[in-house]
Structures are given as C-alpha cells and as structure tokens.
Write a protein that binds this DNA or RNA. Structure first.
Lengths: 338, 338
DNA sequence: GGCGTAATCCAAAACGTTTTGGATTGTTTT
DNA sequence: AAAACAATCCAAAACGTTTTGGATTACGCC
C-alpha cells in the first residue's frame, strides 16, 4: 500500500506536522526524533505524494512542452534534438518535462489551456513561432511564465522572452559563401510564409546579394514545406524556369537534400557544376552525397539556455536580457564546391 | 487571478458541489442551472486545476518515460523516435507524457522512485532492458503499472509486459542476405554485453552461419559502444587481425557507419569488394555513401502499441497477450553489394 | 515567584477538486 | 391525507501535503 505521512506519524507516535518537518529538515525538531522518523520512513519505503505537495505548495517543478504531432508535415529532427537539450538542462535544475504531442490548431491551443491553465507546469517553452501566434497571446494574457525559441516576425513586436538564432546573418553568410565560390545566379527555397522566421531568411539572402552587387530577382525564390518533397519540387520549379541558376540555398537541410536530388536528376554535378547549401546540420547532412554545406545551430546549448531563462522567470527574477540572439556556424562541406 | 470552482459558485449562487457536477455533466442538475453555470465558467475563463483533480481522483492521465541523458554514450536517435511514437499515441488516448532525462545509475533509479512512487504518473514505459534490470524489479515490487520495450535477456524470466522486435530473426535475415551475396567471412559488431538484447543478436548471426554451413568463429565478433566511434574501432580491430573478412554486420547503424569509414580507409570499396549492414534504419542510413543496408523497426507503431498496452494495464484489464514480438524489415541498399 | 527564552512539538487550515450521503422541494400515487 | 417518488441541490469529507500560529515544557535569571 501507499505509505503516507500519516502512517509514519502513527508508527512513530509523533504528529503529521512533526514528521513532515523532520523529513523536510526544519530545525525545530529534536535530532533524535528526526533520526527516529527518518528510520521509520526508510523502513516503510516512504515516497512523498508529489501531487499533494504540488497542490499545496503551488509549484510543480515541471516544464511544459508541446511538440507537433507526427503527421503535421514538418520534420521532427529539430524538435527531438531540442527536447534532448531541454530535458538534460531541466534535469540538472531538478525539473521534469511534461510533453504533449499535438497538431497545430485548435487541439493544440486546448492543450495549452489544459496544461498551463490547469496548473500542471510552472512554465512553458514554445518553439517555431508563427505569425501572430495565438499561443503567445494566450500565455501572456494568463501571465503564465514562458520562453520561446524564435522571435516574432520582423513586423511584430517581440515583447516576450525569447532565444533565437540569427537566421538572417546565417543565410547571409551561407549565401555569401556561395557567391565567393563564383556563383551569380542563386536560387532560394524558403519555408512556408506563415512561419515567423521566413522573412529573416529572405532578408539575409537579399543582403548578401546586395553586398556583392548582384541584383535581387524574386523569380529565384520559392517556398517549400520544410520537407524533402518540398525541396525537390521547389528545385524542379526553379530549374525549369530559371535555367541559368548554378546554385540553390535551401532554408533547411531536408529541403536541401530534396533539391539535391532534383538537381542531380537534371544532370548537374552537385559540388562541381552546381552548389547547394542547407540549414540545420541534421545528421543526414554529413552523410549526404556529396556532404551538405549547412548552418549549424547549437541546439543543445539553446535548450539549456531556454531552461535557465525560464527558471529565472518562474522564480520571479527574469534575467536582464530576455532577448537573446545566438550566432550559428557555417559548416562547409562538398556540396558547395571545392 | 486563478479562477476556481469557488469563484463560479459565488458568482452563480450555487454550491461548489453543484458547479462541479454541472460542469462534469451529471444528470442531477437542472438544465438551466447547468447552462447558467457553464456560461459563467466560460466568462471567467475557468480551467480546472488538474493537480487537485488528480490528487482527489488518484488518476493522472499521464505516462512516465525516463530517457538517457545526453552524455551517456548512446545514440539518442532511437529514443527520440520512440518518444514521438509514444507521444502521438498518448495524445490520442488523452494522456500526457512526463519525461525525465537521467544518466543510468543511481540518479536514474531515484527518478523512478520519485515519479512512479510519487504518484505523478499512472504508468511508465521503459526501454533498453539491461541484465537484471533494477528498474523492473522496483516497479514490480511496487505494483506500479509499466510496459517495456525489449525482453529480458535469454536466460532471464521476462514475466513483465513487453513489446520487442525479434532481433534474433532480424540479424539472421541480414546475415543470410550477406551470405547470399557470396560472403563467407563475415564480422559482427555487437552492442555492449550488459544490454539484454545483445545475446539475441549473436544467436541470430550464429543461426544464419549454421544454416549456410559456415563455421562460427568467435574471433570474428567484437563489442562496440553503439556509437560511430565504437563501430570504427571495432572494424579496425577486425580488419587488422582477420584480413580475410569481406563483410561486417553491425548491430546498429551508427556503428555500421563507423565501420564503413574504417573499411574504406583500408582501401576496400563498400558495396563492391566489401559488404556492410546495420540495424535501426536511422535517417542517415539512407544518405550514407553508399546507402546502408539495414533493419527497419516500426518504431512509431511500437510506440503506439506500448501506450495501448499500458493503458489497458492501468485500467486493470491487461490484454490477453502481454508479450508481443514484432517483425522487422530488411532494407536492402547498396552497401551490401549489387 | 515571576518572567523571558529556547527547544520541541502539534492542531488546524489550506491547496482545489470529486464524491458521498443526504436534505429539501414539489408532484404523483394510494 | 399520507406515502412514495422524482428532481434538484448541497455540506462535509477526502486526497496528502506544507505552513501558520501557537502550546507546552524546562531552564536560567532577577
């Protein structure tokens, strides 16, 4: 049977209060008494009921995280990596993780209401910000602690705590790298337009072009679904209408791999006659043929920082700077040439 | 501020009991009253406090899962895939997931005690069984519902609910496939010996050899750490002392990829003069050069079945068969020859 | 003897639900 | 007119903690 404080109290002859305080280490209980109580607790295999403790103390030591359910059309590589980083960091701080898989949409909002509104967690971590994100408005309106991986889109005011990678700079750097390899006609495969970071990536691309004195041509830019299929289709579309292209930058690795296939099918030699670059540095990027030039984000570190920032916010002393922009790293591999 | 049943009771003039029963849909409350109460609840933005509900009703609608923290030396591809499967299935059944990242060892056991013993979850899912697994003994002794992905090792009695993939058959099939390609000197890179499934894999390998009339030679078998480095080292060791080898079967893809590197460094052409196969079908396997022949496990389906079985056990009516052995699939790619 | 102080203990309230076991009406049946 | 019944409501207990605000005792000091 479950053993409770009451059982220990009866067994030891002390009150529930004293047992509780003995086990919690308060100084107003006699050393011998405490010893005695601890022994009984161990003998009975006492484990505190965390629900009761949480209800009473109004703290859960838990962080909530809602991830997209599988069939949403997005790659999950990204989220699973993030979960690991968050999970590791949370464990170090003695927090657990409450995870719920939901499709974006009404069910997802319902999960936010249930988990955040239902007091199951002390704070939440969101990712992949969308335009006018209803999750953010909800949490803000409820005054529920949260941090976000990803700023709002350029137009929006991002007055919520976030950590982001400077995707604009990253795409600029990778585009610049492609330009340095001698390319002038460079296609771009963007994420869907409702994702908040899409605009930053486009701007980075435009900046690199401008810096090199290459005119920006909108017909070189398409949107993809962040999956391999989207990259494949996007690349085919580009190649069909813009035969002069000799390079493509894709906004994530899966799309880059899809694009690589389309480019190869068209007879180009990726890495020799055609350059391709991605973004994310997923494990498959390293093993692609040719290996994919890409942008590496420190996901594990990001997870840790998200947790640390959230915990400070929960504790009521948010860090001075709740808007963190982390740098990423260009990983040059063979797909962008030699 | 948080709005509770009490607030709705005051606002509406009814008692807390009636408010609770109205919202829960009991038939002993007048239709108009219910309507009125529901309206007030909505107006106030009422969200039930789940901690209180769980404490009172002794059900949490939550499944616990403890994953290895990052620096444990194992690949996490496997676990993250599993989390997604479990998360999706759990969401469908209206369960949430409580995840904690812990290094195997005393801290991990502590987490089991805290989470299972502390009433935070209705049941737990374990994976990667070890010899004489202390987690299993603990949960059994506590009578806490759980299911395991992975049987006990051959010698042990696996009298706990589990779902496993028939790794013995899988390795037999892949070894057989290599033999059919004409190889007679086939190395094997096993997982560490303390993992429960290691023995099954070895047996499958031996069976395939025996079936083909090839003598088993223990010097063809080494253990690796389930990481790329382990595969690399294992393969180097094999090649150094057993120069006659023309093929290597590795017990997971990461080790296979490491082995591939070692083999290539030695001047062999993988897929032509040398065959390599892995196990897991991680995303990188498809993109490896050459693409890796491997074993695909239906991880998403496994996650779903684990959840369904666990939920039945929690409800008190375990399914007839709590020992499920699922088949896997051989994925033939170029690394095993043409 | 009265008073302050320190050490040790505990009853009761509180966290926010759900459930139990009626209580109170009004209506129908005998 | 009494009895049975249906409809509607609710007070109080319970889940297992933590915390508040003392109570009790023993002791030293004036």
């Amino acid at each position: 049977m479950k053993v409770t404080l009451k059982d220990i109290a009866q067994q030891s002859g002390y009150s529930i209060t004293t047992v509780s305080r003995a086990l919690a280490g308060y100084s107003d209980v006699n050393a011998q008494t405490r010893q005695h109580i601890i022994e009984i607790a161990n003998a009975l295999g006492y484990q505190p009921n965390l629900l009761a403790r949480q209800l009473r103390s109004q703290r859960t030591q838990t962080i909530g995280l809602i991830i997209p359910a599988r069939d949403n059309g997005f790659s999950n590589d990204f989220f699973t990596q993030l979960i690991l980083g968050i999970g590791d960091a949370a464990a170090l701080e003695n927090y657990d993780l409450l995870v719920s898989a939901q499709k974006p949409g009404e069910e997802e909002m319902e999960a936010y209401r249930r988990i955040a509104g239902g007091n199951r967690v002390d704070g939440m971590i969101l990712a992949r910000t969308r335009y006018n994100d209803p999750r953010i408005s909800y949490l803000k309106s409820r005054d529920h602690p949260f941090v976000v991986f990803g700023r709002g889109a350029p137009g929006e005011d991002s007055d919520f705590p976030y950590i982001d990678v400077d995707g604009q700079a990253a795409i600029q750097v990778v585009t610049q790298h492609i330009i340095e390899r001698g390319h002038r006609h460079i296609g771009l495969i963007l994420p869907p337009p409702d994702i908040a970071f899409t605009q930053y990536r486009l701007t980075g691309y435009q900046q690199a072009l401008a810096q090199a004195g290459i005119p920006y041509r909108p017909e070189y830019v398409v949107n993809g679904d962040l999956l391999r299929a989207g990259g494949y289709q996007g690349a085919r579309q580009l190649l069909e209408h813009q035969a002069e292209l000799t390079a493509i930058v894709a906004c994530n690795d899966l799309m880059a791999l899809g694009a690589m296939k389309a480019v190869q099918e068209r007879g180009h030699q990726v890495g020799r006659t055609f350059a391709i670059a991605g973004y994310d540095d997923i494990p498959a990027a390293e093993y692609a043929q040719p290996p994919l030039t890409t942008i590496h984000q420190p996901l594990h570190e990001i997870g840790q920082r998200l947790v640390q920032m959230l915990i400070k916010i929960i504790a009521g002393n948010p860090p001075e700077d709740t808007h963190l922009l982390l740098p990423s790293k260009l990983i040059v591999r063979e797909s962008s040439g030699f």
